[in-house]
Amino acid sequence: MSCQNWWHRLGLVVCIVVSVGFVSGCEFNMDNLRNSSQVKATQSDSEKEIWRVFKFYLAATNEFNFTSVKYSHQHMEIVQQARQNIPLAEFKERDYERLEQELIAARDAGHTHSDLEAATDALLPVLHDIVVAVKELDTYYKEKRYDSDNYAFAHTQLEKLSSLMDVFEPKYDALDTIVKTYHKQEGERLVKLMRNNGQTNGANMAEMMLIYSNIVDHIVEHKSNSDFQWLKEQKEAADGIGAKITAAEAQNRLEQKKLLDKEIEDFIADPRSETEEAVVEQYNEMVSSPMNFALLDSVQKPYVPQEL
């Protein structure tokens, strides 16, 4: 895959469980983690320690994927303009440097996931090379060096970036897949905890969001080759669970669910890039609104993500 296609590829925000007890796709970031994860758990709190460390990896990939969606068209335009010898004021791409910093912070946070550590170690060298190459291009354009070499360095550097991206893509995908797998498992564990604690609305909300996460992930991965019958069945399952949620605090989320359902139906009827992007954008819009689990059920000691 060329770097141009990779830059255009949509990322998926799958942040369902966050450190402050909300369902949100945007509030979960590295700055929040640095403020909330300074004290390590004791050995008796091993599960909390595992989740604490994992949140660093989740924050890093979540933020990177989110910016991929939000700025994908701008990134495409920058690359196209650079290839067409347009004198750019600067060369700005996805924040690879921030991703590098956050993954280093994740590695330093603790040693609880050997597979995540191995995937990160495999990714960091090529990621660093990309950071350096992007900075060099940015300096090149800011100093207007294209006036003296007729864009020769730009073309050489773009080819270098293309080769680096061919290496970066599968390594990042491998890391992202591991993060998503752990995150799904944690969501399923949360559903069980809530059900066992009598938090019917909270469990149904978490389970419904897990289904939608799987739906959108499937669409992004398979595009027009998606299993449309499976998508219909999953959406029907989400509808059934959503109908059981009675808490007043959940009504805004349920209204947003209807909008997402329509975008999914439109994609099934006409699977193309525009309808795919509409699904992703509506999903991200839905999860960006905070949802406090503690308010969904009347129990004395509710389980919320903050306690996991």
Rank of each mutant, 00 (worst) to 15 (best):
E236K: 08
Q306Y: 13
S46K: 07
H183N: 14
R195Y: 13
D227T: 05
T67H: 01
N252T: 09
A247G: 14
S224E: 14
K142C: 14
T120Q: 06
K142H: 11
E102W: 01
K48A: 11
H75Y: 12
R9A: 13
Q300E: 11
S226C: 10
K160C: 10
D149H: 03
V304M: 08
H218E: 11
V39E: 07
S37K: 10
A243V: 06
V126R: 04
E47L: 12
Y57G: 00
Q282H: 05
A82G: 01
Q38S: 12
V287C: 07
K235G: 08
Y140H: 02
T200Q: 04
L260V: 13
D270Y: 13
M194Y: 03
N62W: 02
P302R: 03
F153R: 07
L127M: 11
N252A: 14
H128V: 11
P271C: 07
Y212E: 07
G240L: 10
E63L: 12
C3D: 09
R145Y: 12
L295A: 10
K184C: 12
W51M: 09
S273I: 13
S163M: 15
Q84T: 02
Q199R: 04
V134E: 02
R107D: 08
K232P: 01
E277S: 05
L210G: 05
Y172C: 02
P87S: 03
E186N: 08
L103K: 01
S2N: 15
A247E: 08
P302A: 04
H222M: 15
V17S: 09
V216D: 00
E186I: 07
E169C: 11
L158V: 05
L175N: 03
N284W: 00
D147Y: 08
F267A: 05
E274Q: 14
H8Q: 08
M30F: 07
I86D: 02
D270M: 15
F22N: 15
D138R: 08
S213H: 03
D95F: 01
S298L: 15
C15G: 05
E274T: 11
K142L: 15
I264F: 05
A41T: 06
G240N: 11
P305V: 02
K235D: 15
K171N: 02
K301H: 15
G21T: 03
N29T: 10
D138S: 12
T200L: 03
L164T: 15
I211G: 00
F168M: 08
E263H: 09
M194Q: 06
S44D: 12
S24H: 14
Q43M: 12
E49K: 09
L164A: 10
V126L: 06
A248Y: 08
H183C: 05
N32V: 14
L123V: 07
Q300V: 08
T112W: 06
G240D: 13
T67F: 01
V53N: 01
I215M: 00
S224F: 15
Y146F: 15
K232A: 07
L12K: 01
S273W: 06
T42F: 14
D239K: 09
R145M: 13
A237S: 10
E90K: 14
K142A: 10
K160V: 09
V18E: 11
K160Q: 14
P170T: 06
S46A: 08
E207F: 06
N32P: 06
T156I: 15
G187W: 03
V126E: 03
I264G: 00
E117V: 13
M205Q: 00
